[in-house]
Design a protein around this nucleic acid. Structure first.
Ligand code: ZN
Length: 136
DNA sequence: GCTGCCGGGCG
DNA sequence: CGCCCGGCAGC
């Protein structure tokens, strides 16, 4: 509840002087919410807010961005190049199935609800790894 | 039981 | 390529 606001405010308030992060991870990135945000933003009204809330009772947290800090920048040792034969030490068995530990049990599905499936993130719609609440 | 996700299938 | 479900694992 306030933790988010507080955390965000604190983050912005204590924003370091020089810090730019412009790299992204591998998962796709899209924010269909922008449309929603814009739509609800355009409304700008009390009754409008209520209506918007009715349509989407979720305030929406934000896109994503967690990577604490990758410290694999220094010690830039050269990398090895692998080519030719491939490595297959382990058996050719398929993956042991799911392996992702659950961190936050609050994704588009539970947050929005089955009745608002259209509002879920694309990945969630396809029953894939959520990209909006992603928690890499 | 539900959610969340991978693997797999279809246009 | 986008779209979706079966089925499993974790809670
Ligand atoms: Zn999602």
């Amino acid at each position: 509840m306030e933790s988010i606001s507080d955390g965000l405010a604190g983050l912005y308030a204590s924003s370091p002087p020089t810090l730019s992060h412009m790299d992204m991870a591998r998962p796709p990135h899209e924010d269909p919410q922008y449309q929603r945000e814009l739509a609800m933003r355009a409304a700008g009204g009390d009754p409008a807010a209520a209506a918007a809330a009715a349509a989407a009772p979720i305030p929406i947290p934000g896109p994503r961005q967690s990577w604490t800090t990758s410290l694999w920048s220094t010690t830039g040792s050269s990398k090895y190049i692998r080519l030719g034969t491939k490595v297959m030490t382990t058996s050719p068995k398929t993956s042991p199935h799911h392996r992702r530990i659950r961190g936050d049990v609050k994704k588009c599905r539970k947050v929005y609800g089955m009745e608002h499936r259209e509002q879920w993130c694309t990945q969630c719609k396809w029953k894939k790894a959520c990209t909006r609440f992603a928690m890499d």
